Amino acid sequence: MPYTLYRLAAGSYDLLLDGTVMGGVVRDVPPDGDVRRWRAELLDDLPPLQRPQPFTEIEHRFDSLEEVVSWLGDAAITNNS
């Protein structure tokens, strides 16, 4: 499962699967600035059997970007340059 995270801006990535944008990964910054978390989400609300692995839900939350990268099978990160 060749996922790639394409950096758009600080804390914001397009999520590509085999070169096609199918979701996003963003850092949530709460108003009080307390705990920052990350979320990976699909663009389309696909039925469970049509979701690409490892997605079991439309959105998943993580404590760090490293956790997201690992969950996506060590996804490559490409910077917008």
Rank of each mutant, 00 (worst) to 15 (best):
D45K: 03
G11A: 01
A10P: 01
E59L: 15
M22E: 05
V25N: 02
P30R: 14
G73D: 06
R61N: 04
R39G: 04
A9W: 03
L49H: 15
T78W: 02
L16M: 01
R36L: 05
S81M: 06
P30Q: 12
D32H: 09
I58Q: 11
Y3H: 06
M1V: 12
L43V: 12
I77N: 01
M22R: 13
D34E: 14
Q50Y: 13
R61S: 07
P48L: 04
S81R: 12
P30E: 10
S64V: 01
R39W: 08
E59Y: 01
Q50P: 00
T20I: 13
D44K: 09
D63L: 13
G11N: 01
M22Y: 09
T56P: 01
R39Q: 10
A9H: 05
D44Q: 14
G24Y: 11
L5T: 02
G19P: 08
G19C: 05
L15M: 15
G23V: 05
L49G: 07
N80C: 10
L17S: 04
N80E: 09
L43D: 15
R37W: 12
R37G: 09
Y13N: 04
S12E: 08
H60Y: 02
A10N: 09
T56A: 09
E57N: 00
P30W: 05
R39N: 06
H60P: 02
M22H: 10
V29M: 07
R61Q: 10
E41T: 13
L15T: 03
R7C: 14
A9T: 09
T78R: 03
H60D: 05
E67P: 01
